[in-house]
Amino acid sequence: MLRDALLAHRDGARVFAGTHSTGAGILGFSDTFVGVLREAGFSDGDAARVLYTVANFTVGHTLEEQAAAAPENGGPAGVEKLRDAVTSGSDYPHLTRALPAFADMDFGRNFEFGLCLLIDGLKARR
Rank of each mutant, 00 (worst) to 15 (best):
F29I: 04
T22E: 15
T22V: 14
V36G: 11
P93G: 00
L117P: 11
T58H: 05
V79K: 08
A85S: 14
G12N: 10
I26M: 13
D11I: 05
F113L: 07
F42P: 04
S88R: 15
A68G: 03
V15L: 03
M105L: 12
F29M: 00
G18I: 03
A40P: 01
D120N: 15
I26G: 04
P93D: 11
R126Y: 02
T62I: 00
S30C: 00
V59D: 06
L27K: 14
D11Y: 07
D46P: 05
L82K: 14
I26A: 05
D44A: 14
P71W: 00
A24Q: 09
L51S: 04
L82S: 06
L122G: 11
D44N: 12
T58V: 01
L82P: 12
E65I: 02
P100M: 05
T22Y: 07
N110S: 11
T87C: 10
A40T: 03
G121I: 01
D31Y: 01
E64W: 00
F102S: 10
A47I: 01
E72G: 08
L115I: 02
R83M: 06
L37E: 06
A85K: 15
C116Y: 09
D104I: 03
F57W: 13
D91H: 13
R3Y: 05
V36H: 12
E72S: 15
F29P: 03
F102A: 10
D46S: 06
V50I: 15
N73M: 03
R97H: 07
V86G: 10
L37V: 10
E65V: 01
R125V: 01
F33K: 10
G23N: 15
F102H: 12
L117I: 03
L51W: 15
F16D: 06
E80F: 08
E80S: 13
E65R: 01
T19Y: 10
T58K: 04
L6K: 10
L122F: 11
G23R: 14
D44V: 14
S88I: 09
T58Y: 05
V50D: 11
T96V: 14
I26K: 08
T19L: 10
A101D: 13
A47Y: 05
R126N: 03
A47M: 07
R3C: 04
A98M: 12
R109Y: 07
G41V: 02
G23V: 04
E64T: 00
Q66W: 05
P100L: 13
L115D: 05
E112A: 06
G45L: 12
V59N: 05
A103F: 02
H94S: 11
G28W: 07
D106S: 04
G89C: 08
D84V: 13
R10W: 05
G75P: 02
K123M: 05
G18W: 08
R109G: 02
T87S: 15
R49C: 08
D4Y: 07
E39K: 11
A8P: 04
V79T: 15
A69N: 11
R38A: 08
L2V: 02
G114Y: 09
T53E: 12
A55N: 08
N110W: 06
G28Q: 00
N56T: 12
G41M: 01
G75N: 02
A48L: 13
A77Q: 15
R109W: 00
D31V: 04
E65D: 02
T53M: 15
D106G: 02
